[in-house]
Computed example of a mutant assay.
Amino acid sequence: MLPYGSYLAISIGSVCVIILVGFIILLKLPLRRLVILLESVFRFKEVRNIGDDYAVIDVCNDQFEISKTISSRLPFVFALGMCFLVIILVFIEGCIFSTRHVYSTRLCSDRTPNCYLFKSQLTSFKPIYNFICEPDKPIIPSNMSASYAVCYGFVLPDQSSIDLLNQLGVCAGILSMVESLYPLAYRFARHKYRRICLILLICAMILLEIIVLSMQLNVTFITIILLTLTEVLLVNIFVLQYRHMKYPANLTRMGSYIEMKDML
């Protein structure tokens, strides 16, 4: 069984590495491939381009410039990066390295037999002890003062081809939901009072996440990840709409320039 420090290094370090490598790749990605990814994931349409250096994409009838500059790419890279991060984490959680956060007398699982026991979630930096739990026995015995446990297991050796295909289906389903719901949310946020409703929804989701964690409810790690993805994508909508309101004149000027150059 891994020492607690090694477990943290693997779980937190792998997420940090995925985020760093993913965002570097997306920021350095050729413009044409970035536009293709945006069309595939969010159905954003390209309306014009100049070679590999400049493109204008249509986001629900709002047009945005994308070039080689980081500032023009960042909102789109952030949205793509969060989607791919969630997909990777869901796949890892289901097929490689599974983790459970336990707050009650739940029974041990064959998938996650290696456990760290804590006095409470607030003391999760220092485990009371670590152990390998036996199947069908309580992870946290009723006679112990501890109330929180983290269990993990390397599940890759037990995976069949069907398991891998099922998990890939879950990942594809998440992307399909993003593809369908993100444009609807963007259109919904166009009007002032609807934007207020979305802000209230984001606040409610953040509050729900805090309540779930603070009250130590038995909610899966994947549920928290999906809630966080939804919050980030909704915030990104406001960033895109702010850019559209701030730079409308520049788009008109650039569009005229492109048309004149094409005619020449």
Rank of each mutant, 00 (worst) to 15 (best):
P157N: 03
C95H: 02
R73T: 01
S160V: 03
I88S: 13
I162E: 06
I87S: 15
Q216W: 00
M245A: 14
V15C: 04
A149I: 11
C16G: 12
L80I: 11
I88F: 14
M263H: 09
Y4I: 07
R43T: 11
I139F: 03
C133A: 07
M254V: 10
S176I: 05
R190Y: 12
V150F: 09
L181A: 10
D262R: 14
P183V: 07
Y116C: 09
S40C: 03
V239S: 09
F44L: 10
Y129T: 12
G173M: 02
C60G: 06
G51M: 01
Y242Q: 09
R190P: 00
L198P: 01
G153H: 03
L31S: 01
L217R: 06
F125A: 12
Q241N: 08
I24G: 03
E65F: 06
L240A: 09
D58I: 09
I70T: 13
V35F: 01
P3F: 04
I87K: 01
S161R: 09
N218Q: 15
N250A: 12
L233Q: 04
Y186H: 06
V47L: 02
E39N: 15
K246Y: 10
R48P: 00
L165D: 00
Y257M: 05
F23P: 00
N236K: 03
V17S: 12
L89Q: 14
N143A: 08
V102T: 15
S124D: 12
C133T: 08
S145T: 09
V178L: 05
V155Y: 04
Y103F: 15
L213T: 08
F76Q: 07
K246F: 08
F42A: 08
P75V: 06
F154R: 10
L37P: 02
K192M: 11
P30D: 02
N218C: 06
S67L: 01
Y247L: 14
F221N: 11
G51A: 04
I224E: 07
F154K: 05
C115M: 07
A55D: 02
L200W: 08
V59L: 05
F97H: 12
S71C: 03
